[in-house]
């Protein structure tokens, strides 16, 4: 017998309240904020202070090393947010029963997950703006000349990075495991993002392989858009495909408790 006096589900603004609270809590994590927002630009600054890196090089087609490192900084921020910070937060929320507790309220734990993804995405965006600003103002690196293509590549990159983080969390039962998997994934992710050797300067064969990875493909897409071209659909497509694939894996394997 259904109780007709039962109120209609969900208080308006409940998900907004979750997002607001999570945003406040995110601001209380200075270490996470440092690694996502400040670290990539800091790395960019350090490299920019090395005089030869500011000299145009014939090997790079007249570009300077610092020019290549702006997209690297952008990708680095995504990698840190997706692989290092997000899985720890999500796995911790599950391990400590926070998602479970939320299941007994009118708000589904999905709201908490969505809030976390949105916040990490927004933080990456702030980091990107900072890296572009530092590149432009301190070292005269041109702003992306194909802004729309750049933005599209950026959105797909962030999507792929966060999906990778959600996948790590889905596959990790505890925070310890998430940290371990995160660290294992972190180094190849940084390599394919071009932190050690920018993807554009890699030997041909290596570049072709790296281009198949989510961050390698993203690096190429960002590089083209920065140079004023529309990014190749193969690179955009590959980044998007990775994002989609990882999202499916995360949804399939994620456990709420």
């Amino acid at each position: 017998m259904a109780d007709t006096t039962a109120p209609a589900p969900a208080a308006p603004g409940a998900s907004a309240a979750v997002l607001r609270t999570e945003a406040r809590l995110f601001l209380r994590e200075p270490a996470a904020l440092f690694w996502i927002v400040a670290f990539p630009s800091l790395l960019l600054t350090v490299l920019g202070l090395v005089p030869p890196f500011r000299e145009p090089s014939e090997d790079l087609g007249g570009l300077r090393v610092i020019d290549l490192y702006v997209p690297v900084a952008v990708l680095l921020s995504t990698v840190v947010a997706g692989v290092q910070v997000l899985p720890n937060t999500l796995t911790g929320y599950r391990e400590r029963g926070i998602l479970r507790r939320l299941s007994t309220t009118p708000v589904r734990p999905r709201a908490l997950l969505t809030a976390q993804l949105a916040l990490h995405g927004a933080t990456v965006l702030v980091s990107v703006v900072l890296a572009l600003a530092v590149g432009r103002l301190a070292f005269g690196v041109a702003l992306p000349e194909q802004p729309l293509g750049y933005l599209l590549a950026l959105v797909l990159t962030a999507f792929a990075g966060l999906a990778l983080g959600a996948t790590v969390s889905a596959l990790s039962r505890t925070v310890k495991i998430a940290q371990t998997i995160g660290t294992i994934v972190f180094f190849p992710a940084m390599f394919t993002a071009g932190v050690w050797v920018p993807v554009q300067t890699m030997p041909d064969l290596l570049r072709r392989i790296v281009e198949l990875s989510p961050f390698g493909a993203a690096s190429q897409a960002l590089d083209r858009a920065a140079a004023g071209e529309w990014p190749a659909w193969t690179h955009l497509g590959l980044t998007g495909l990775w994002a989609l694939l990882l999202t499916c894996v995360a949804i399939r394997w994620f456990r709420w408790e």
Binding site: A17, R24, G97, I98, T105
Partner: peptide
């Protein structure tokens, strides 16, 4: 055996959970 976010204050938790309910 279920916790809250480590850095949420008592007030924030109470306000948050209040916001889940229409009344």
């Amino acid at each position: 055996e279920s916790e809250l976010q480590a850095k949420i204050t008592v007030r924030e938790a109470l306000e948050l959970y209040s916001a889940f309910h229409p009344r």
